[in-house]
Simulated assay, not measured.
Amino acid sequence: MKARSDELQIFVCVIECGSISAAAEQVGQTPSAVSRTLSRLEAKLDTTLINRTTRRMDLTEEGKYFFEQAKRILDQMEELEERLSSRQQTPSGRLRINAASPFMLHAIVPHIDEFRRLYPDIQLELNSNDLIIDLLEQSTDIAIRIGTLADSTLHARSLGCSPLRILASPAYLKQHGTPKAVTDLVAHTLIGFTQHESLNHWPLQHAHGDRWQIQPAISASSGDTVRLLALAGQGICCLSHFMTIDDIRAGRLVVLLDKANTGYRQPINAVYYRNSQLALRIQCFLDFIQGKLADYASSDFRG
Protein backbone atom coordinates (compact mmCIF):
# COMPACT_ATOMS: atom_id res chain seq x y z
CA MET A 1 0.00 0.00 0.00
CA LYS A 2 1.09 3.58 -0.65
CA ALA A 3 1.25 6.38 1.87
CA ARG A 4 -1.68 8.78 1.76
CA SER A 5 -1.51 12.54 1.98
CA ASP A 6 -3.38 12.59 5.30
CA GLU A 7 -0.74 10.28 6.77
CA LEU A 8 2.01 12.59 5.52
CA GLN A 9 0.22 15.55 7.09
CA ILE A 10 -0.05 13.85 10.47
CA PHE A 11 3.59 12.73 10.37
CA VAL A 12 4.77 16.27 9.53
CA CYS A 13 2.47 17.73 12.19
CA VAL A 14 3.92 15.43 14.86
CA ILE A 15 7.46 16.50 13.99
CA GLU A 16 6.62 20.20 13.87
CA CYS A 17 4.62 20.09 17.12
CA GLY A 18 7.24 18.02 18.92
CA SER A 19 4.86 15.46 20.41
CA ILE A 20 2.00 13.15 19.52
CA SER A 21 -0.33 14.76 22.03
CA ALA A 22 0.29 18.28 20.69
CA ALA A 23 -0.20 17.08 17.13
CA ALA A 24 -3.39 15.26 18.10
CA GLU A 25 -4.81 18.46 19.54
CA GLN A 26 -3.95 20.39 16.39
CA VAL A 27 -5.48 17.87 13.95
CA GLY A 28 -8.48 17.15 16.16
CA GLN A 29 -7.75 13.48 16.81
CA THR A 30 -6.90 11.42 19.85
CA PRO A 31 -3.25 10.71 20.62
CA SER A 32 -3.90 6.99 20.12
CA ALA A 33 -5.31 7.64 16.64
CA VAL A 34 -2.26 9.71 15.71
CA SER A 35 0.03 7.01 17.07
CA ARG A 36 -1.77 4.38 14.99
CA THR A 37 -1.37 6.53 11.88
CA LEU A 38 2.38 6.77 12.48
CA SER A 39 2.65 3.01 12.98
CA ARG A 40 0.60 2.37 9.82
CA LEU A 41 2.83 4.72 7.84
CA GLU A 42 5.99 3.01 9.07
CA ALA A 43 4.50 -0.37 8.19
CA LYS A 44 3.72 0.79 4.66
CA LEU A 45 7.26 2.13 4.23
CA ASP A 46 8.78 -0.86 6.01
CA THR A 47 11.07 1.39 8.00
CA THR A 48 11.24 3.16 11.35
CA LEU A 49 10.76 6.90 11.01
CA ILE A 50 10.69 7.91 14.68
CA ASN A 51 12.33 6.34 17.70
CA ARG A 52 9.70 6.86 20.39
CA THR A 53 10.05 6.54 24.15
CA THR A 54 7.86 7.74 26.98
CA ARG A 55 10.06 10.85 27.30
CA ARG A 56 11.09 11.88 23.80
CA MET A 57 10.96 11.32 20.07
CA ASP A 58 13.94 11.27 17.72
CA LEU A 59 13.84 11.07 13.94
CA THR A 60 15.87 8.28 12.39
CA GLU A 61 18.02 9.07 9.35
CA GLU A 62 15.22 7.66 7.20
CA GLY A 63 12.76 9.78 9.16
CA LYS A 64 14.74 12.96 8.55
CA TYR A 65 14.84 12.28 4.82
CA PHE A 66 11.16 11.36 4.72
CA PHE A 67 10.21 14.48 6.69
CA GLU A 68 12.01 16.76 4.22
CA GLN A 69 10.38 15.05 1.24
CA ALA A 70 6.94 14.87 2.85
CA LYS A 71 7.10 18.58 3.72
CA ARG A 72 8.05 19.40 0.14
CA ILE A 73 5.21 17.27 -1.24
CA LEU A 74 2.65 18.84 1.08
CA ASP A 75 3.88 22.32 0.21
CA GLN A 76 3.53 21.52 -3.48
CA MET A 77 0.04 20.14 -2.93
CA GLU A 78 -0.94 23.23 -0.96
CA GLU A 79 0.47 25.48 -3.66
CA LEU A 80 -1.33 23.56 -6.40
CA GLU A 81 -4.65 23.69 -4.57
CA GLU A 82 -4.17 27.40 -3.91
CA ARG A 83 -3.40 28.17 -7.54
CA LEU A 84 -6.23 26.09 -8.94
CA SER A 85 -8.81 27.32 -6.44
CA SER A 86 -11.07 29.73 -8.29
CA ARG A 87 -8.25 30.55 -10.73
CA GLN A 88 -6.07 32.15 -8.03
CA GLN A 89 -8.57 34.90 -7.36
CA THR A 90 -7.75 35.20 -3.65
CA PRO A 91 -4.41 34.53 -1.92
CA SER A 92 -5.06 32.59 1.27
CA GLY A 93 -3.58 30.25 3.84
CA ARG A 94 -1.05 30.49 6.65
CA LEU A 95 2.07 32.59 6.03
CA ARG A 96 4.95 32.13 8.46
CA ILE A 97 7.48 34.96 8.49
CA ASN A 98 10.71 35.20 10.47
CA ALA A 99 12.76 38.39 10.72
CA ALA A 100 15.32 40.01 12.98
CA SER A 101 13.57 41.90 15.77
CA PRO A 102 14.29 45.46 14.55
CA PHE A 103 13.02 44.69 11.05
CA MET A 104 9.93 42.95 12.39
CA LEU A 105 9.07 45.83 14.73
CA HIS A 106 9.85 48.75 12.42
CA ALA A 107 9.38 47.51 8.86
CA ILE A 108 6.68 44.82 9.09
CA VAL A 109 4.43 45.39 12.11
CA PRO A 110 3.53 49.01 11.20
CA HIS A 111 2.16 47.78 7.85
CA ILE A 112 0.26 44.70 9.02
CA ASP A 113 -3.06 46.55 9.16
CA GLU A 114 -2.77 47.58 5.52
CA PHE A 115 -1.61 44.12 4.44
CA ARG A 116 -4.52 42.42 6.20
CA ARG A 117 -6.98 44.80 4.58
CA LEU A 118 -5.55 43.87 1.18
CA TYR A 119 -5.34 40.12 1.88
CA PRO A 120 -7.86 39.20 4.60
CA ASP A 121 -7.67 35.47 3.86
CA ILE A 122 -3.95 35.19 4.68
CA GLN A 123 -3.27 34.10 8.26
CA LEU A 124 0.00 35.64 9.42
CA GLU A 125 2.41 34.04 11.87
CA LEU A 126 5.22 36.44 12.82
CA ASN A 127 8.37 35.29 14.61
CA SER A 128 11.49 37.23 15.54
CA ASN A 129 14.98 35.81 15.68
CA ASP A 130 18.24 37.73 15.31
CA LEU A 131 20.15 34.56 14.42
CA ILE A 132 20.19 32.56 11.20
CA ILE A 133 17.56 29.84 11.52
CA ASP A 134 16.81 26.54 9.83
CA LEU A 135 13.64 27.29 7.89
CA LEU A 136 12.61 23.65 7.89
CA GLU A 137 13.03 23.18 11.63
CA GLN A 138 11.27 26.45 12.40
CA SER A 139 8.42 25.80 9.93
CA THR A 140 9.08 29.13 8.26
CA ASP A 141 7.94 30.18 4.78
CA ILE A 142 10.05 33.34 4.55
CA ALA A 143 13.03 34.58 6.55
CA ILE A 144 14.08 38.18 6.05
CA ARG A 145 17.71 38.96 6.74
CA ILE A 146 19.72 42.18 6.69
CA GLY A 147 23.29 42.30 5.41
CA THR A 148 25.27 40.23 2.94
CA LEU A 149 24.06 36.64 2.76
CA ALA A 150 26.46 33.77 3.14
CA ASP A 151 26.49 31.12 0.45
CA SER A 152 23.40 29.01 0.91
CA THR A 153 21.23 26.37 -0.72
CA LEU A 154 18.27 28.66 -0.01
CA HIS A 155 16.66 30.78 -2.66
CA ALA A 156 16.91 34.50 -2.06
CA ARG A 157 15.03 37.50 -3.35
CA SER A 158 16.38 41.00 -2.89
CA LEU A 159 13.81 43.27 -1.26
CA GLY A 160 15.94 46.39 -1.52
CA CYS A 161 18.37 48.09 0.78
CA SER A 162 18.43 50.55 3.65
CA PRO A 163 20.92 53.41 4.22
CA LEU A 164 22.91 53.62 7.44
CA ARG A 165 22.79 56.94 9.27
CA ILE A 166 24.92 58.43 12.05
CA LEU A 167 22.44 59.69 14.66
CA ALA A 168 22.10 61.37 18.01
CA SER A 169 19.31 62.96 20.02
CA PRO A 170 18.93 66.76 20.26
CA ALA A 171 19.44 66.47 24.03
CA TYR A 172 22.82 64.75 23.58
CA LEU A 173 23.96 67.32 21.00
CA LYS A 174 22.87 70.22 23.19
CA GLN A 175 24.95 68.89 26.07
CA HIS A 176 28.00 67.62 24.18
CA GLY A 177 28.04 69.55 20.92
CA THR A 178 27.67 68.43 17.31
CA PRO A 179 30.61 66.70 15.58
CA LYS A 180 31.56 68.59 12.41
CA ALA A 181 34.14 66.11 11.14
CA VAL A 182 34.57 62.36 11.39
CA THR A 183 37.64 62.75 13.62
CA ASP A 184 35.50 64.70 16.10
CA LEU A 185 33.80 61.40 17.03
CA VAL A 186 36.75 60.39 19.22
CA ALA A 187 35.66 63.04 21.72
CA HIS A 188 32.10 61.74 21.89
CA THR A 189 30.28 58.84 23.55
CA LEU A 190 29.63 56.23 20.87
CA ILE A 191 27.07 53.44 21.06
CA GLY A 192 27.98 50.19 19.27
CA PHE A 193 27.22 46.49 19.07
CA THR A 194 28.52 43.59 21.12
CA GLN A 195 28.17 41.15 18.21
CA HIS A 196 29.07 41.33 14.53
CA GLU A 197 32.18 43.49 14.58
CA SER A 198 31.31 44.87 11.13
CA LEU A 199 28.48 46.85 12.76
CA ASN A 200 31.11 48.88 14.60
CA HIS A 201 32.65 50.00 11.29
CA TRP A 202 30.65 53.07 10.32
CA PRO A 203 30.31 54.10 6.64
CA LEU A 204 32.22 57.37 6.94
CA GLN A 205 34.81 58.73 4.53
CA HIS A 206 38.01 59.91 6.22
CA ALA A 207 41.68 60.40 5.43
CA HIS A 208 42.51 56.69 5.74
CA GLY A 209 39.51 55.03 4.12
CA ASP A 210 35.75 54.78 3.95
CA ARG A 211 35.01 52.80 7.14
CA TRP A 212 35.46 54.39 10.56
CA GLN A 213 36.07 51.80 13.28
CA ILE A 214 34.59 53.00 16.55
CA GLN A 215 35.47 52.17 20.12
CA PRO A 216 32.03 52.08 21.73
CA ALA A 217 31.59 53.39 25.23
CA ILE A 218 28.28 51.52 25.38
CA SER A 219 27.58 48.28 23.52
CA ALA A 220 24.36 46.35 23.00
CA SER A 221 23.39 43.17 21.16
CA SER A 222 20.13 44.57 19.78
CA GLY A 223 19.58 47.40 17.33
CA ASP A 224 16.48 48.41 19.25
CA THR A 225 18.51 48.72 22.45
CA VAL A 226 21.02 50.92 20.61
CA ARG A 227 18.15 53.05 19.31
CA LEU A 228 16.61 53.49 22.76
CA LEU A 229 19.98 54.45 24.22
CA ALA A 230 20.41 57.09 21.53
CA LEU A 231 16.88 58.40 22.11
CA ALA A 232 17.70 58.67 25.81
CA GLY A 233 20.65 60.94 24.99
CA GLN A 234 23.33 58.42 25.88
CA GLY A 235 25.48 58.88 22.80
CA ILE A 236 25.91 58.75 19.01
CA CYS A 237 24.94 55.62 17.06
CA CYS A 238 24.82 54.21 13.54
CA LEU A 239 21.53 52.54 12.60
CA SER A 240 19.58 51.48 9.57
CA HIS A 241 17.17 54.04 8.11
CA PHE A 242 14.15 51.70 8.17
CA MET A 243 14.19 51.62 11.98
CA THR A 244 14.86 55.30 12.56
CA ILE A 245 12.93 57.07 9.81
CA ASP A 246 10.05 57.99 12.14
CA ASP A 247 12.47 59.27 14.80
CA ILE A 248 14.19 61.48 12.23
CA ARG A 249 10.90 62.84 10.91
CA ALA A 250 9.71 63.61 14.44
CA GLY A 251 13.01 65.27 15.40
CA ARG A 252 13.79 62.71 18.09
CA LEU A 253 17.05 61.84 16.31
CA VAL A 254 19.29 64.09 14.19
CA VAL A 255 21.35 62.89 11.20
CA LEU A 256 25.06 63.69 11.63
CA LEU A 257 28.04 63.84 9.27
CA ASP A 258 25.87 63.15 6.24
CA LYS A 259 28.37 64.72 3.81
CA ALA A 260 31.01 62.22 5.00
CA ASN A 261 28.60 59.28 4.75
CA THR A 262 29.70 56.93 1.95
CA GLY A 263 26.09 56.09 1.10
CA TYR A 264 26.48 52.42 1.96
CA ARG A 265 23.12 50.66 2.09
CA GLN A 266 22.47 47.39 3.90
CA PRO A 267 21.03 44.75 1.56
CA ILE A 268 17.74 43.19 2.66
CA ASN A 269 16.84 39.74 1.37
CA ALA A 270 14.03 37.26 1.73
CA VAL A 271 15.15 33.64 1.78
CA TYR A 272 12.92 30.62 1.26
CA TYR A 273 13.05 26.93 0.39
CA ARG A 274 10.59 26.64 -2.44
CA ASN A 275 12.16 25.28 -5.61
CA SER A 276 9.14 25.95 -7.79
CA GLN A 277 7.00 29.02 -8.35
CA LEU A 278 6.21 30.81 -5.11
CA ALA A 279 2.85 30.30 -3.47
CA LEU A 280 0.56 33.23 -4.16
CA ARG A 281 0.39 34.36 -0.52
CA ILE A 282 4.21 34.46 -0.33
CA GLN A 283 4.46 36.38 -3.59
CA CYS A 284 1.89 38.91 -2.38
CA PHE A 285 3.76 39.55 0.86
CA LEU A 286 7.15 39.93 -0.83
CA ASP A 287 5.75 42.38 -3.37
CA PHE A 288 4.02 44.32 -0.60
CA ILE A 289 7.00 44.64 1.73
CA GLN A 290 9.35 45.40 -1.17
CA GLY A 291 7.20 48.43 -1.98
CA LYS A 292 7.42 49.62 1.62
CA LEU A 293 11.20 49.27 1.63
CA ALA A 294 11.38 51.28 -1.59
CA ASP A 295 9.63 54.09 0.28
CA TYR A 296 12.27 53.94 3.03
CA ALA A 297 15.14 53.89 0.56
CA SER A 298 13.81 56.91 -1.33
CA SER A 299 13.55 59.01 1.85
CA ASP A 300 16.51 61.36 2.15
CA PHE A 301 17.36 63.37 5.26
CA ARG A 302 20.31 65.68 5.59
CA GLY A 303 22.00 66.43 8.86
Score class of each variant (00 low, 15 high):
His196Leu: 13
Gln283Cys: 05
Ala220Lys: 06
Ile10Met: 05
Pro203Ala: 12
Leu59Asp: 04
Pro179Leu: 12
Gln123Ile: 15
Leu136Phe: 02
Pro170Ala: 11
Glu42Ile: 08
Thr225Val: 15
Asn129Gly: 07
Leu204Ser: 04
Lys259Tyr: 04
Gln26Tyr: 11
Asn98Arg: 09
Val226Ser: 03
Phe288Asp: 00
Asp134Trp: 05
Thr140Lys: 05
Pro163Phe: 04
Phe301Gly: 03
Val254Thr: 14
Ala33Phe: 05
Asp130Val: 07
His111Trp: 11
Thr30Asn: 01
Lys2Val: 12
Ala294Gln: 08
Met77Pro: 00
Tyr272Asp: 01
Ser152Tyr: 07
Gln277Ala: 15
Asp300Ala: 14
Arg211Gly: 03
Gln138Phe: 12
Ile122Trp: 02
His155Tyr: 13
Arg40Val: 13
Gly177Val: 09
Ser32Glu: 13
Ala220Ile: 03
Phe103Ala: 03
Asp121Tyr: 12
Tyr273Phe: 05
Pro267Leu: 08
Leu185Ile: 09
Gly93Glu: 02
Asp247Ile: 10
Leu8Lys: 11
Tyr296Ala: 06
Ala220Tyr: 05
Thr37Ile: 15
Thr48Asn: 10
Cys284Val: 11
Ala279Pro: 09
Leu8Thr: 01
Tyr296Pro: 00
Thr189Leu: 05
Ser219His: 01
Asn275Trp: 08
Gln213Pro: 02
Thr60Phe: 09
Cys17His: 03
Pro203Cys: 12
Asp6Leu: 10
Leu199Arg: 15
Val14Cys: 04
Thr244Asn: 01
Asp134Leu: 04
Leu95Thr: 01
Cys237Ser: 13
Gly28Gln: 02
Arg56Phe: 14
Arg211Gln: 14
Gly223Val: 11
Asn51Met: 06
Ile133Phe: 01
Ser221His: 07
Ile108His: 00
Arg55Glu: 13
Val27Leu: 04
Leu59Ala: 06
His188Phe: 14
Glu25Asn: 10
Lys2Asn: 11
Gly147His: 05
Gly233Tyr: 10
Gln69Pro: 01
Arg83Lys: 15
Glu42Phe: 12
Ser162Glu: 01
Thr47Met: 11
Val34Asp: 00
